[in-house]
């Protein structure tokens, strides 16, 4: 199952601030839905564990997250892939672009996600909605994290 999702957020912070947060492991960990751990393995790589919950389905994925195509402070690509044991595998990437706009920053993203194995075989009707929700949640969490009111 391969899906593409897009979206954008107007953030009340400077491009540099948004960029910094995009590169802050603590922020990323807090924003990735179900993320249990995100440990730095290199300048641009992390070992990650995340639990994905879709209705009655609950699967733990172990894998890695990497940052590439870094173009500070204009954007990058954040990619992740994980093995979920019997559930199969998941991988995805988001191309994130930052543009100064209206005194803040416009963040736009294009997410591509792919699911394989049992989840793809049996969860067809759930996957689109769930992937969209995970992507939406990540960027909503992130928008929250860069809003000045949040800690």
């Amino acid at each position: 199952m391969a899906m593409t999702m897009t979206g954008e957020y107007q953030l009340p912070a400077s491009q540099q601030t948004v960029w910094d947060k995009l590169n802050d492991p603590a922020v990323l960990k807090a924003c990735i839905p179900g993320c249990e751990s995100l440990d730095k393995t290199s300048d641009t790589g992390f070992a990650a564990v995340a639990t994905i919950k879709i209705g009655p389905v609950k699967a733990k994925f172990k894998g890695n997250v990497s940052l590439s195509d870094l173009d500070p402070p204009n954007g990058y690509k954040i990619s992740g892939q994980g093995e979920g044991g019997v559930a199969g595998f998941a991988k995805g990437g988001a191309t994130v672009k930052l543009v100064p706009k209206d005194g803040g920053t416009l963040l736009s993203y294009t997410v591509e996600a792919q699911i394989g194995g049992k989840l793809a075989q049996l969860g067809q009707r759930l996957i689109n909605g769930a992937s969209k929700k995970i992507a939406d949640d990540f960027f909503a969490n992130f928008a929250n994290a860069v809003s000045p009111r949040s800690p």
Binding site: M1, A2, Q114, G116, A120, Q121, L122
Partner: peptide
Amino acid sequence: YDDKGQLVSGSYMD
């Protein structure tokens, strides 16, 4: 099948 070769109609749900 999706273009990556996953059988997405793989149960009686689909």
